[in-house]
Amino acid sequence: MSEKEGLSVIVKVVTRWIVGFVLLFGLYIVIFGHLTPGGGFPGGVIIAGTFVLLTLAFGKDTPLRKLNSTLASELDSTGAIIFLGIALLGLYFGSFFAENFLTKLPSSYFKLFSAGVIPWANLAIGLKVGASIFMVFIILSVTRVVGLPNGEKKMTRKPTGRRK
């Protein structure tokens, strides 16, 4: 990792300490979404926020090495397909589209594995939202308008680590 790119060394060290905890907090918000405040949307945005934090502190290359844009778009599609699949399974096992078809025993209330398909749908939504927002941020941040010497503006894009 080059020393020139990104912010100062203090920010880098603090980011390196904190980013794991932020990711863990995002996962907690996603997984416990049906018991405590939270859910797939804020959790997914927090997970995307860890990568945004890495981008701001270390420059664009570090998060793209961990998650390049092709993988991010694949995760995005995977989340959407899982979510739609859960909805269609409700049609297959239950009686109507998007039905909560798993059994819901009263003894399982307020436990982690309760609420039928809701935790799995939360996971899918978190995956989808996190990957989408990371993609949007990467697209916005690799694009850069530079002024040419003759006064015109030109838009350039840095490579996003896309697989060939």
Binding site: P37, G39, F110, N122
Partner: peptide, 14 residues
């Protein structure tokens, strides 16, 4: 009906 303690989530996802 859904088993989720958070009513907002149960509306959102069920």
């Amino acid at each position: 009906r859904t088993g989720a303690a958070n009513v907002t989530t149960s509306i959102l996802l069920d």
